[in-house]
Computed example of a mutant assay.
Amino acid sequence: MPATTHALPPNAATVEVAVRWSDMDAYGHVNNVQYLRYLEEARVYAFHEWFGQERSLLEDGVLVARTEIDYLAPMTFNYEPALVTLWCSRISGAAFDISYVVGQRGSDLTFARAESTLVTYELSKGRPRRIAEHERAAMKVVLGDPLPLRSHKDRR
């Protein structure tokens, strides 16, 4: 089973996410839909760390436009939390990408790699908005290279 070979950015956040018995599917490993929940939970905690406590990007408005996951190894239940390491891997006018590596405490395996595209959104007007300078500055602190996902081979 693969380990992480991609160099993780030094300012990436790592968030512990509980692996629950109910996350398992009939095959005895974490169900694919649970990975989306792990990524979401890690993102909420990372945004709190990256953007501060007074107002977060979550309250100002952000939508998930795309998520792509490469499943690399089955994660089975044990009492150790999943470890989701995440960082910003692209910033544009109104959107940004977050890259994720999903591991587990006590294991050197990488269970999944993922990437989400998020769009900053003006909730009151119901439309995308440009990324504010303070948000862009916070993202640049945790900016790193994108992960080599399987679909990226088609982009070359």
Rank of each mutant, 00 (worst) to 15 (best):
A3T: 11
T4R: 03
T5A: 12
H6L: 07
A7L: 13
N11P: 14
A13I: 06
V15W: 07
E16Y: 08
A18G: 11
V19A: 01
V19K: 00
D23G: 00
D25L: 01
D25E: 04
A26L: 01
H29Y: 06
V30I: 02
V30K: 00
N32C: 04
V33F: 04
Q34E: 05
Y35Q: 03
E49F: 03
E49A: 02
F51M: 08
G52I: 02
E59K: 01
D60A: 08
I69L: 05
Y71A: 09
A73R: 07
P74L: 00
T76P: 02
Y79V: 08
V84T: 02
C88N: 14
R90M: 14
I91H: 13
S92R: 11
F96S: 09
I98K: 01
D108Y: 04
T110E: 03
A112L: 05
R113M: 08
E115R: 08
L118P: 11
T120E: 14
Y121D: 12
Y121S: 13
G126D: 10
R127V: 03
R129P: 11
E133H: 13
H134A: 13
M139D: 05
M139C: 14
G144I: 05
P148F: 11
L149F: 07
L149Y: 09
L149K: 04
R150G: 04
R150M: 08
K153Q: 14
D154M: 09
R155C: 14
